[in-house]
C-alpha cells in the first residue's frame, strides 16, 4: 500500500496544470489593481514585480464604474441569462425530438441543425442587421437576444447525451400512458443536469462574448453591452489598459460566481442517479 492517498498524484497534476492556466489570469487581476502607467512597466526581465504590484490602486475600477460600466454589465447579464433561460428550454426540447422521437427525415433535420452552427455568424451579421433595422427592431433586447437563444451546438450536445439515456425508461413511461412532454420534463431533463449546465454555458458564452452583433443593432448607451463598453476605451492613439483589465476581471468574476455553486453537477453521473 502506498503511503500517500490515491488522489495525491492526480490532484498534484491537475494543480500544476491549473496553475499554468491561471498565471495569465493572475497577471490580469494584479494588473487591474495597478496604476495605469505601471501595467506595462514590469514585463522583463523576470522579477517579482511582474506579479507583485509596487503600487496598488482601485482607481481603474472606480473610473470604470463612473463611466457607466455598471449599466453595460447589467445589459450583458440580462441578455446572457435571459438567453440561457429561454435557450435551455427550446434547445433541450429540440434535442429531445432528435433523440427520443422517431419521425421521417429525422437525419435530415439533424443535418440542418449541424449546418446552423457551421455558419459563421459574423459573416451574416451585416445583412441580418439590415433586416433587423428595416423591421425597426434595432435598439431592443429582442434584437440583442434573438441570435443567441436557439443554438445548434447546444442542441447537438444535448442530443448526444439524451441518446445515452436508457430507452427502457422511455418505453416504460409510454406504456404507462405518460405524455411525451412529461417524459421530456420528468425523465430526460432531470437525468441530464451536467449536460444542461454545459448547454447553459454554451448559450451563455455566445452572448457574453458578443461584440459585433450588438454594435450593428444598437446605437444607444441604454443597450450597450460590456464588451462594447470596453472596446470604447480604445482610442485612436491610446487605450486605457487599466480600465480594460479591470473590466475583464469583473466580466470573469460574474460567471465564476454563478458557475461555482453549479460545480457539483459537473461531477454528477448517471450511474449516481440510480438509473442503470
Amino acid at each position: 500500500m502506498p503511503a500517500l492517498p490515491k488522489s495525491f498524484v492526480p490532484t498534484l497534476l491537475i494543480g500544476i496544470v491549473t496553475a499554468i492556466f491561471m498565471t495569465p489570469l493572475m497577471w490580469l487581476v494584479v494588473s487591474a489593481f495597478r496604476p495605469e502607467g505601471d501595467i506595462l512597466g514590469h514585463l522583463s526581465p523576470l522579477t517579482w514585480e511582474i506579479i507583485v504590484p509596487a503600487r496598488v490602486t482601485t482607481e481603474n475600477f472606480t473610473l470604470l464604474i463612473e463611466n457607466g460600466f455598471g449599466r453595460a454589465v447589467f445589459n450583458s447579464v440580462f441578455i446572457a441569462f435571459g438567453s440561457v433561460f429561454l435557450g435551455l428550454l427550446i434547445n433541450s426540447m429540440a434535442a429531445f425530438a432528435l433523440s427520443a422521437i422517431e419521425f421521417p427525415r429525422r437525419g435530415l433535420v439533424f443535418a440542418v441543425v449541424v449546418v446552423t452552427f457551421l455558419i459563421p455568424f459574423e459573416a451574416i451579421g451585416i445583412p441580418l442587421a439590415g433586416t433587423v433595422r428595416q423591421l425597426n427592431l434595432d435598439n431592443s433586447y429582442a434584437a440583442l437576444m434573438g441570435p443567441g437563444i436557439a443554438n445548434g451546438f447546444a442542441i447537438f450536445m444535448l442530443r448526444q447525451f439524451f441518446l445515452s439515456i436508457p430507452k427502457e425508461l422511455f418505453e416504460a413511461a409510454r406504456v404507462d400512458g405518460v405524455s411525451l412532454f412529461q417524459i421530456y420534463w420528468r425523465i430526460y431533463v432531470p437525468l441530464s443536469k451536467a449536460p444542461m449546465v454545459g448547454a447553459g454555458i454554451i448559450i451563455f458564452l455566445f452572448q457574453w462574448q458578443a461584440y459585433m452583433w450588438p454594435l450593428l443593432v444598437t446605437n444607444t448607451r441604454e443597450y450597450e453591452v460590456a464588451p462594447v463598453a470596453l472596446a470604447k476605451l480604445i482610442g485612436q492613439f491610446d487605450f486605457d489598459l487599466g480600465q480594460m483589465l479591470a473590466g475583464a476581471v469583473l466580466l470573469a468574476l460574474i460567471p465564476a460566481l454563478v458557475i461555482l455553486p453549479l460545480q457539483r453537477y459537473f461531477t454528477q453521473s448517471i450511474a449516481g442517479t440510480g438509473v442503470k
Partner: peptide, 12 residues
C-alpha cells in the same frame, strides 16, 4: 452624441 469604438467606426 453616440460614442462608438474607434476600430469599428468605419464599419458602422
Amino acid at each position: 452624441y453616440e460614442n462608438v469604438p474607434f476600430n469599428d467606426l468605419n464599419s458602422i
